[in-house]
Design a protein around this nucleic acid. Structure first.
Lengths: 408, 408
DNA sequence: CAATAATAAATAAGAGTGAGTTATTTATTG
DNA sequence: CAATAAATAACTCACTCTTATTTATTATTG
């Protein structure tokens, strides 16, 4: 079953489904994005560094970067002395160069953040609910945006470059049978939430899977940007994933790439089950409920779960093994450099989970594969909302997504 | 364990591991490749068609295509009358526009083919052996190339644009314990066969996994070019695979993407085994041996295996189920549009195998996934050698592989 | 049924843009 | 003060775009 909302969209119609040619403005745009991408990855770089890396002439880089500085995307840093020759002037991203809105629509709450060009959170809005409902969600977005925009100067306001939505794929399917009326959940199935929110905004609106978005946050704002290709797991209420190929978030032809929660892994009795059935936080919740332990910290305090007893240990062990199988399967498809694991959990638990995966991995038959190294994610609980905000950023300012330079 | 030979190489040193900028010649080259890619995909196209598809101006397309025609890459077809306005002149690929050499190094034989710009096989050279040995292989390549080049006019000879090698990953590991001396097989581990062959050639030499190469043949010469993203299985002595993303063969950071033979799938007793242990032709061979049937047609007559009895039926069933699991796992990583299955087997068997997969697929839990459609490959037994030849073609004439336009 | 209009492909001439080249300036270390 | 390296200025060159023109066909009309 396909989610009609999951056709990534921008503000412009794209009448040509095919490849497009390149002209001078496309070339310039590509080179500008390249400069911004390199500066983002390295923190700060001198014009001469960029020229060497890109093989563009020093003059060309000079022109491009002066323009980017003039446009407020780059800032000069103190000249670097100590080596022969004129000191180089490192250029860094200007945090105020552009702003982005990230919207996470979850099963228990919606969250909207305003972030700056380097991923700093400038404001946060939150709406908890028993179950999500499209009308309420759109109202929340409308009022939150109105509120945050009034707090900005006109100059800042004009620099809001886009909004991204992170939402579970097939939200209606995974809804809690408990609280959610069937009819409300079915609304999600047919409603094009992206268009509804686009109607509120004069900047482009993008939508992607929540775990894929979280992966985008890791790529754009995290410390994993030394990696060109990695597979990413976000362990939330349900386990999900994302894919980075050639340094770009890859969400696939239908937007459902990195649907790692649906990966078949060996189950307790030998029969295959889905990763989601072993590595989700709801699985831990059920185990705690069955043991008459209080599971509420799982949702309310992701920074510290307190003592959850042996149920946690068992979950970490089983989830880690399941993730290890998923990693081997993913490595059979793409020879990822790394597997990055993050989630809605305390950093200490995340670390234990990564250790469990690292421990289980060598016990799986991986003959013929180059196994990825396993790493912790570096964003944490905010990854989905920040990832949502990273979507317009990537689309507009990085060499990414549809990145062949196109006509303008 | 990593195969040092599996660093895809070209004839030029690539000192910059990073992204490169675009300049005018890069822009022109990109647009030329785009034209050739579109003409290849559609069979023939008028200049005006290309202009509409690429959004380039008619004049630009006119200039580019007249140049490509002058350079011998495009041919005029009869004008298309019947509609209002000046008749359009479709342009098609000139088969003699460029030639490519494909080399397959297998476990039982090496094969070298010369193909033209549209995939026509112009000559074939074959060397059967009990086990592969690097020295013999290089000698075979040297003499075959010498021979085929003397049969070409100087004009044709100068149009040989590259050579591709298709070779199993970790050839030494899968070697038949029977015939192959350990020492000879170990030579493969350390020898850089690509460089050795590059030394014989004045055109660039590429190397890729054999199944990945076969996938490239399907993409470039097959009838699967309506697909932007697909997963490909080549069932040879061992099962292997390849990946196509955004219309380009993706071989991954280490060249080991699409290592689908190593995919864990449920085994006969519940414990996971690798796909290779269920869906390889060697598995069928062993079953035939155990039943005292003659397995030799498997290798000697891939066009017609004759009657192989119930062992074949069992193998098709088991291999089909295993492939179905591998497809679901792959679909969890990337939401491929299609799964294409080809191999060293008669077309009728390939068809039965695809049916077995299609039958097994709906019985696997694929909640949350968009399952790809299952298709037969359209190249068949020659896929690996032709795929090898497709590597330099893609690299040089299609928007592909390292396809961001770069400086020249 | 010719004459003319409409349509679309293809091309020509010239403008505009952006990267490359060469030479120059600037600021530092040795 | 020489050597080195960053940064920039002036100018050239390549390639696409725009506008106008030519060409070949089908459709329309008196």
């Amino acid at each position: 079953m396909q989610n009609s909302a999951f056709k990534r969209g921008s503000t412009e119609p794209e009448p040509s489904p095919m490849h497009r040619g390149t002209n001078q403005s496309g070339m310039r745009e590509h080179n500008e994005r390249l400069v911004l991408s390199l500066v983002r990855r390295h923190g700060s770089l001198a014009k001469s560094d960029i020229a060497r890396m890109t093989r563009l002439s020093a003059q060309t880089v000079s022109v491009i970067m002066r323009q980017l500085e003039k446009d407020g995307f780059l800032l000069r840093r103190p000249p670097q002395r100590g080596r022969v020759g004129q000191p180089s002037i490192p250029m860094a991203l200007n945090p105020d160069g552009a702003y982005f809105i990230g919207l996470k629509i979850g099963r228990r709450s919606a969250e909207l953040v305003l972030i700056d060009f380097v991923g700093g959170i400038r404001s946060t809005h939150r709406l908890p609910y028993r179950y999500p409902d499209p009308g309420t969600a759109v109202d929340f977005v409308a009022s939150s945006i109105r509120e945050l925009r009034t707090a900005l100067t006109p100059e800042q306001d004009s620099r809001i470059a886009g909004l991204g939505i992170a939402m579970p794929f097939q939200l209606w399917n995974w809804a809690d049978a408990a609280g959610a009326p069937r009819m409300v959940m079915d609304e999600w199935r047919h409603r094009d939430i992206r268009s509804d929110i686009q109607a509120l905004c004069d900047f482009p609106v993008y939508l992607d899977n929540d775990a894929t978005s979280a992966c985008g946050a890791e790529l754009v704002f995290g410390k994993s940007n030394d990696l060109r290709d990695f597979v990413y797991f976000y362990i939330g209420a349900f386990a999900g994933g994302g894919i980075v190929l050639d340094g770009r978030l890859y969400s696939g032809p239908t937007g459902n790439a990195g649907a790692l929660g649906s990966m078949p892994v060996p189950g307790p009795n030998g029969a295959p089950v889905q990763l989601i059935d072993l590595a989700s936080i709801t699985v831990l919740e059920k185990a705690l409920d069955a043991a008459d332990r209080d599971a509420s910290p799982l949702w309310s305090s992701p920074q510290d779960w307190g003592d959850l007893g042996p149920e946690l240990d068992i979950w970490v062990e089983k989830a880690g093994t399941a993730l290890a199988y998923a990693i081997v399967s993913a490595a059979s498809v793409i020879d990822f450099e790394a597997a990055v694991i993050d989630g809605w959990m305390p950093a200490a638990i995340r670390q234990r989970l990564v250790e469990a995966v690292s421990h289980a991995l060598p016990r799986i038959d991986a003959e013929g594969l180059n196994l990825p190294t396993v790493r912790e994610g570096t964003i944490g609980v905010n990854a989905r909302a920040m990832g949502a905000a990273s979507l317009p950023l990537s689309e507009r300012y990085l060499v990414g997504a549809m990145s062949l330079p196109t006509n303008v």
